[in-house]
């Protein structure tokens, strides 16, 4: 496989970087809670963020299909 271009490698690194938070986190209150609750918070954050995009996107796509 051809080696990735430097730019693409940079983009992949930038995409992965936020998922591995460093230990030197300055916020005193973070990560003291129950990891299960933290996971559910993260999950519902993702669902709630994606839901409006899917709803509006779905409506826009449906209308576009109807009209064309």
């Amino acid at each position: 496989m051809r080696a990735m271009k430097f730019r693409n490698r940079l983009l992949v690194a930038a995409a992965v970087f936020p998922l591995i938070p460093g230990t030197a986190w300055a916020c005193p209150a973070c990560m003291v809670g129950d990891p299960k609750t933290a996971g559910i918070y993260l999950g519902s954050t993702l669902v709630m963020s994606a839901l409006p995009l899917f709803l509006v996107g779905g409506l826009a796509y449906w209308l576009w299909r109807r009209h064309s």
Binding site: D34, T37, I40, Y41, S44, V47, M48, L51, P52, L55
Partner: peptide
């Protein structure tokens, strides 16, 4: 669409309260 978001918020709040 606005209503779905309203109920989704209630459900997610309920999910969080339930887990914690």
């Amino acid at each position: 669409i606005a209503e779905i978001m309203f109920f989704a918020a209630l459900m997610s709040a309920h999910t969080i309260a339930r887990s914690s």
